[in-house]
Simulated assay, not measured.
Amino acid sequence: MKEQLRKSVSKDVLSAVKNYVASTGGLRVTGLYSLVWDGIEYELIDAVLIHTRGNQSKAARMLGKEALILTYKTAEMFDYLFKYAEVSTYSFDCC
């Protein structure tokens, strides 16, 4: 099962990188590692947090990371989302 996941992710990343590089029309490509890794990392953390219903301790165990690292990465994710989101105002229904 783990090998199947690894192969699937590898195939998807390879395809996405090939398409991105081809779409640049021969322009110099820079920062590719960060671009790809940030996208994968944020999606992975998001999926695990959804699965654990936001429980960061459980999510950290699933990811094999320390809870403090996950807290830091989650904060990074929110900063990224608010910086690049198409909608700049959010309304949270709470309590």
Rank of each mutant, 00 (worst) to 15 (best):
D46S: 10
N19R: 07
D38Q: 04
R53D: 15
V9Q: 09
W37L: 13
I69K: 10
L14F: 08
T52L: 06
Q56L: 14
S15I: 13
G26Y: 02
L32I: 09
T24G: 15
S15H: 07
L5K: 07
V13C: 02
I69V: 14
W37P: 00
N55T: 09
V29P: 01
D46A: 09
L32E: 14
D46R: 02
W37S: 06
Y80Q: 13
T24I: 06
S34R: 10
E76D: 13
G31Q: 08
A22Y: 09
L68C: 04
K11Q: 04
V29Q: 14
K65Q: 15
Q56M: 14
Y33K: 03
G25I: 08
L63A: 03
G54Q: 08
I45T: 01
G25K: 10
F82I: 05
E76W: 01
R6N: 08
A47Y: 01
S10K: 11
R61H: 14
T30A: 10
L27K: 07
L27S: 08
L5H: 12
D46H: 07
T71V: 08
V13M: 15
F78S: 04
S8P: 12
L70F: 09
S15M: 15
Q56E: 05
K58L: 01
L49C: 07
G31Y: 11
M62G: 05
Y72M: 09
I40A: 08
A22S: 10
G39F: 07
T24S: 15
D46F: 02
I40S: 08
S34H: 15
L49E: 01
L70G: 00
Y42F: 03
Y20A: 04
H51Q: 02
A60H: 03
E43T: 11
F78C: 07
L63S: 03
L49R: 00
V9T: 11
Y72H: 08
H51S: 14
R28I: 14
Y72C: 10
K18I: 06
S34K: 09
D12R: 08
R61A: 02
I69A: 06
G64V: 14
G54H: 12
V21Y: 13
I45P: 00
Y33S: 12
F82R: 06
E43C: 10
S34Y: 03
N19M: 04
S10F: 10
A22E: 15
T30M: 12
S8V: 13
M62D: 15
A60C: 09
W37E: 02
S8L: 10
V17H: 00
G39Y: 04
L32N: 05
V48W: 04
G54R: 09
E76T: 02
A67S: 14
R61C: 03
A22W: 12
M62N: 04
G31W: 01
G31V: 10
L44V: 02
I69P: 00
L81F: 13
D12S: 07
A75Q: 12
E43D: 09
T30W: 05
V21L: 12
F78A: 04
S23M: 05
S15G: 13
V17T: 05
L14P: 01
A47H: 12
L5W: 05
R6L: 15
K7E: 09
K83R: 11
A47I: 04
T52N: 00
A59H: 00
Y20M: 11
L44P: 00
